[in-house]
Design a binder for these strands. Structure first.
Lengths: 148, 148
DNA sequence: TCCTTGAGTTCGGAATCCAAACTCAGCTAC
DNA sequence: GTAGCTGAGTTTGGATTCCGAACTCAAGGA
């Protein structure tokens, strides 16, 4: 199965893994969650080549993760890229990556940026829980069974 | 900044995003969490080219996500790839991807495989929560501030 | 001795990626 | 009214990376 055909693989984990597993896509989403919205700003912030940036943005548009929104500047109409609801729903994925990165890939006492809950000021972390009993789960608490 | 140098970027989200954002790496991890451990089995399950498989496994070994463990078969010693603790800790990332995939990338009523809590049989989902008050958070509930 | 198997390594062609140059539309300044 | 500037791409030729097939190598087995 060539990489591209994972897009149609019958697996709820395989499809997103193939989509987000292309070079630059996760880094692009990180930049978007940090607030970047315009082509030139992505290009400056990440030093990605312009043609690849065009391609990745188009893939995310096609998948409905991003939308192009017009805005005014100097009386001219331009467009910026924004998350759709589907895109915003990737927040747990980003936070899970960050939680892992902080624990396992952060040298010394570096702190890249702070995240805190607007209401109470607390920290932020990703976790996996049981939808019934609410317990926090690790891989070993979970049973995998083939599709029914 | 070329893609490779994101590995040393001072960002707890950037580094993991660059590591897992290489083609095949997320799909490889998916396969590992599903129980695959041997070179030939990865190759058969994913149809990845052997040279790229070698490369990706080595990167994950170097990062300490995987370890090579000897085992006996037919009286011969061979090796298999297994998750380290660091690797098992990627579980929330995988589950966040799957939770998103089920909601947004699953056509019709497809069910790829079932996950349930061993103890109570409940479902499994990823979420982001506040470490202080325990509330479930979305991107809009979280304030980002530059490193202090 | 030859065959099989798991686990890679090598290699030439195909597909991607990259940086730099080019395009194009709509102002702005002269 | 034309020359320049800017944001947002598109094009292009060379550098990387990926791919599939063939090759290697070590350790049994027939």
């Amino acid at each position: 199965m060539p990489y591209a055909s994972f897009a149609s693989m019958p697996c709820a984990l395989g499809r997103p893994a193939a989509l987000l597993g292309e070079r630059w896509t996760l880094l692009l989403l990180r930049q978007i969650f940090l607030g970047t919205r315009r082509f030139e700003d992505f290009q400056a912030a990440m030093e990605i080549s312009r043609s690849v940036l065009t391609d990745r943005l188009n893939v995310l548009l096609q998948e409905g993760v991003l939308k192009r929104v017009p805005y005014q500047e100097d009386g001219r109409t331009r467009h910026e890229y924004r998350l759709t609801e589907k895109g915003r729903d990737l927040y747990p994925v980003m936070m899970a990556l960050r939680t892992w990165g902080e624990k396992w890939m952060t040298p010394e006492e570096e702190e890249s940026f702070h995240l805190h809950h607007r209401d109470c000021g607390g920290g932020v972390r990703a976790k996996v829980e049981c939808t019934d009993c609410g317990a926090e789960l690790s891989a070993r608490d979970v049973q995998v069974t083939a599709r029914s």
